[in-house]
Every structure is written in C-alpha cells, then in structure tokens.
Design a protein around this nucleic acid. Structure first.
Length: 605
DNA sequence: GAGACTATGAGTATAAAC
DNA sequence: GTTTATACTCATAGTCTC
C-alpha cells in the first residue's frame, strides 16, 4: 500500500544496521579502543546518549562494544517504545514470531521488503507446525473445515463439496506443490488457488491460507446464537435507557481500571490475551465503539448494556504516546495477537518535542501532556505566566511555581523559550495523535476548526493497536462502515496497519472533516471506494441494506459518537447520553443492529 | 457572518491524611 | 473506613475584530 505521501519520518535504515551488527558479532568492526570512541560510534549508530551511558555504567568503560549494544537493545525492548532496535524486528516479534527467524528473514529479503519477510515467516511457522505433527489435526478437520470468515463466506459452500479442486495449469500445479511443501494441506492449497486465481504469488496464497486458519480459531466469533435475539429494538432501547439511566443497586457498575491500560498496552506489563465475550456480542461484523472514559456515572453501564453487554476496555493513551487520552472502547475484536503500528509514537514530551528541552524548567516535572482538547490557552494567559516568571530572575518562589505548573497542566503548555510557555500547535497535535503531518491543514480548514477536529479525534496509535488483530484476518481488504468519522482516525489507523480498505462508507456531519478524509484517501492512493454521508440519520435501514448488498457487507463498524454532553470540559450541557449530541449513540446502536441482522440474512441466503 | 479570542466550574476519580 | 485535598476533562457561549 502506498504510504509515500505520509510523513512518518522513520529512520529504519539506521536501526536495521544496528541489528546487523548484533546478529553478526564474530567479525564485529566495533573494536573501539576507548569508552569515548565507543560512545561516539554508538551515537552515530543512532542509540540514545542516555541508554549508552547507562550501558557503559553497568558494564564498565572497557566492556566489549557488542555487550554494550546488547544491553541497550534490552533497555529499548523492555522499556520505551521509542526503540532504537530495528522496528521491523519489533514488529514481527510483537506478532509472535521467533526472533532468530525474524532476523534471518530480514537478512534474506531486506528490511524494506515487509511482505516477503512476512511470507517467509508464515511459511516457516506453518512448516514447523507440520513438522510438529500439527498437520494431522488440520487433516482431520478437512472434512468439515469451516472457513466462516465473512470475507470468505463463499468458501463454506465450496469447502462443503466433496471434490478436491486442483488447478490444471502447470504453473498452478507448481504453486500447489510449493504450498504443500510449505506444510499446507493439498485441499487448503487448492482452495486458495481457486479463490485467489492463478495470478497471485505463492506468498500471497500462503497469507490467504493463514488468514483462513486464524479465522477458524475465531470460529466461535462467527457462530450465530439463535437463542440470543436482541433484547430491544433500536427504538425501544432509547426508551429503556431513559428508564435505566442509572444502574440498579444490584448491578456491578462499570469501574475505571488503575492503571488504565485495558487488556494491555505495548511495552507495559499486565497483558491479557483472553476474555469472555457474551455470546450475543459475537459477529460478524466486528464493531468498535469509542467515547470519553470520564463520562457521568452510569453512562458506560448504559453504553455497555446497549452494545450486547460487552464491557468497555478503558485505555489512557499516555501509556502509548506522550499525551493522555482516557477513553473507553467497546468492541468484539479478538485481543490476542495485537501489535504496535510502526513507527511507534514518541513516548515523552521531550522525545516528541526535543526543542522544548532547552527551555524546560527543572521544577516542571511533567513527562506527559494531558488530554488534547478542542480549545487552546489564550495569549493573555501565557503572557501572565511570562510576567510572573520575569518578576523572579532566579528560581521562582513556590507559589509562582505552583501557579505556573497548574496553568501548564490545565492548558497543556510546553516551553518554547525563556519563561515562554505556549499551547500546542495543530501540527504538533497531529503528531501526538498519530496522524501524518498536515493531515488537517488547508482545504478550507481554519485554525479553530483544526483544533476542534483534532480535539475530537481518535489517538491513532491506540486504535491501531486494537485493530491490528484484523490484519491477518483480512489480507485482501476490509469493508468498513465508519460512523462519526471526524478526521478519519479509524481510516488512518487501518492505513498505517496496511490493511487494504476495499470500501469505506463514512458518515460525518462536518464538511471540512469529510474533505479531510477525501484528501487523505486521494493522497494515500487508496484503491478502494470511499462513500461519504453527512448525517447518520440519512443512513436509513433500507440504505444500509442496499449498501451491504452492493459491497458484500461490512466487516467492521467503527465510530465514536459525540461526547459533547459527556465530556468533563462541558460546563453548560453535560447532560449524559440523552444530550442533544451524545444521544446519537443510539444511532450507532441502530445502525450496528441493522448491519448485524442484514449480515445474518446474507449469510443464510 | 466567520473566525479568533476569552472566561467560564462541576463532576469524577484518586491520592493523601486522619 | 472516612474525610479532605488534588488532579483532570474529545466544551460552551459571549465578545471582539475584520
């Protein structure tokens, strides 16, 4: 997928070089003679001075350079996501591949050739499984193999036939043999050939089979528990919600976790890979709903109840990037096999904005920014801060420090000069939120509108981490229904994950936001189709069914409904889910229910 | 009229103190 | 266990300038 027009600013080449050193230690050219030289060499290689100093301190100034590198690699893997280890290696390690094989594959195919590396690793993993006599299990399953992945719905019928489909052409015969040699069963290989056609590479075919195998692991997801009919119609839900806006005393109210890391975040302990999902919540489609974590009491109970009793996953993005963003996510996605999108975000303020380091007062201990909101501090406030500090040429008294720090925290200010605290610029917000630079710039968007749209958007790295499990499930693309799209955080996340978007039906009320998504679609050379609606209420039940029949259904329904009446910053109309804007949550429920029902109808017919 | 600028707490959770 | 202190929050509305 083309990504040329986005500015991810990666330095993978340098980091791969580091790992080449690591993987070929015997003839290492790094026979430095002094710790200063070692230090300089390592700096040149891109390691951070802090990590180098730490490693030298731990292992002594005369330690072998490779020992130092190994130590630094351990720091970066175990702690911060701004790893100086190869991001490609991290990427595949996070997917669960063996490090040795990852390094070997990178050597063989070159670090830039992600697809070939993935193919090699998948082939190797399947081959290993076959050697470990896992293949007989596959063989046993062949008779009633059930690839019920929505993208592969047609397979079920095909698979249920008794005939083995083997292509006649010599080229296909060769591909089939290759796949069998890689450890796939003959039936799986021939099915893949049949489905993908003869013009697809062996690697892609292997990818396809693996995706279907993974889909089978989530077979439960695709069961249709007939006994679990929706408890309410969409209309009835809203009435019900008024009656049950607060949980009863017997209910266990939804609580925020501490630390707020959901089922786990990259580079932090506490990862959970299993959860029990209510049977009624099983899809297809997958759904992903987002809103502010700190909503009025009872709101998340109501949201959860209306989204099939799925408990929210609360995540504060400060565990993933340099800015806090406490959000709840209700979804029915698998949670095993998540990985962090590359390149990872900067983890601290100083890493995200190195130029601020020069001016950062020692008494300002912040390493993370607070939540990015929709408005900025006034010039008068930053002037008051400047005057307060200039009144004390040396270190300011405690009272002044407290005033300044309080204001910096409240308005998310960073230090851009002597005594100069300043609010974030829109492009800095884009960086923090995981969007490409200038994503919201131009196209008729005023600065005020940029701030508002960015303040309302997803933190892309967080969402991408959750959506990463879809990558192996939809190797040939995904159909997305994107509600309350905003500036396209979900779409950017899928793009950064390199999950092809076959179709995106987007609903967004703001014209400038719709234009931003359209521009993003064109600039990233998306091959799929983008269809934009302005209002969720335009999306009638009939229209949804028509779209689904046209595009073969939706694989993912994603969106975060308006938070205006839920957000803590609203001093005027924080009226909960019944508020003028936030009540659109029930439109999300309506649309999701129609998609689910129509999906079932389509699968039956 | 559009956009920029500004002032405007309360609700919630958590940590600290008792 | 209870009370108190502290921290944080996808915002709204009025006013001004152009």
């Amino acid at each position: 997928m083309a990504q040329d027009s986005t500015d991810w600013n990666t330095d993978d080449d340098l980091e791969f070089e580091i790992d080449n050193y690591k993987s070929s230690p015997p003839s290492s050219p790094l026979a430095a003679t002094s710790s200063d030289e070692v230090f300089a060499q390592l700096i040149d290689m891109g390691f951070s001075p802090e990590n180098i100093a730490r490693a030298i301190e731990e292992h002594g100034p005369n330690a072998d350079t490779m020992v130092i590198i190994d130590a630094i690699s351990k720091y970066t893997v175990n702690s911060e996501p701004s790893s100086s280890k190869s991001k490609t290696i991290d990427h595949f390690l996070a997917m669960g591949f063996d490090e040795e094989k990852v390094i070997k594959a990178i050597h063989e195919h070159g670090e830039d050739n992600i697809e070939e590396i993935a193919n090699a690793l998948i082939s190797s993993a399947v081959s290993d499984a076959a050697k470990a006599e896992i293949s007989p299990t596959i063989k046993e399953e062949e008779d009633d193999i059930d690839w019920t992945e929505s993208d592969d719905e047609k397979y079920a019928e095909f698979l249920s036939s008794d005939d083995e489909k083997v292509s006649d052409s010599p080229e296909n015969g060769s591909k089939l043999r290759s796949l069998v040699d890689m450890g796939f069963s003959e039936l799986e290989a021939s099915l893949a050939l049949e489905r993908c056609g003869g013009n697809v590479s062996v690697g892609d075919l292997a990818d396809f089979i693996c995706a279907a195998q993974i889909a089978r692991e989530f077979d439960e997801f695709h069961t249709e528990p007939e006994e679990h009919k929706p408890r309410f119609s969409a209309k009835k839900r809203r009435i019900e919600s008024k009656r049950e806006s607060r949980p009863s005393a017997d209910d266990d109210p939804v609580r925020l976790p501490n630390p707020m890391i959901g089922f786990g975040v990259p580079n932090e302990p506490g990862l959970i890979t299993q959860r029990s999902l209510p049977a009624i919540a099983h899809g297809p489609p997958y759904f992903y709903y987002e809103n502010v974590a700190l909503a009025p009491k009872g709101v998340w109970d109501t949201i959860s109840r209306h989204l099939y009793d799925v408990l929210p996953e609360f995540v504060d993005s400060k565990y993933i990037c340099a800015a806090a963003r406490k959000r709840g996510y209700v979804h029915n996605l698998p949670i095993s096999g998540r990985y962090q999108v590359q390149p990872p975000p900067k983890y601290t303020i100083s890493e995200a904005f190195p130029l601020t380091k020069k001016w950062w007062p020692t008494w300002d201990k912040r390493t993370k920014l607070n939540c990015i909101l929709t408005v900025n501090a006034s010039a008068q406030l930053t002037n008051r801060i400047r005057l307060a500090l200039e009144a004390h040429p040396g270190e300011p008294p405690e009272g002044t420090k407290k005033y300044v720090i309080d204001q910096c925290r409240k308005w998310n200010l960073v230090w851009v000069g002597k005594n100069k605290a300043a609010p974030l610029e829109p492009d800095e917000m884009e960086t923090l939120l995981g969007f490409p630079r200038n994503h919201t710039r131009g196209g008729g968007m005023s600065r005020t509108e940029r701030l508002k749209s960015l303040g309302n958007s997803f933190q892309v790295d967080t969402v991408a981490y959750h959506l990463s499990v879809l990558k192996p499930l939809f190797p040939f693309g995904i159909n997305v229904l994107s509600l309350f799209t905003g500036i396209g955080g979900g779409e950017v996340a899928l793009h950064r994950l390199q999950i092809p978007m076959k179709t995106v039906v987007s609903v967004e009320i703001s014209l400038v936001n719709r234009n931003i998504l359209k521009d993003f679609w064109e600039q990233t050379n998306q091959k799929g189709k983008l269809i934009e609606f302005a209002d969720v209420q335009e999306l009638s039940n009939e229209k949804i069914k028509e779209l689904m029949k046209k595009f073969g259904g939706f694989d993912l329904v994603i969106g975060g409904s308006p938070c205006n009446n839920l957000a803590g910053g609203n001093r005027v109309s924080r009226s909960g889910l019944e508020g003028e804007q936030s009540c659109l949550f029930f439109e999300y429920c309506r649309i999701l229910e129609v998609v689910r029902e129509t999906t079932k109808e389509m699968r039956r017919s």
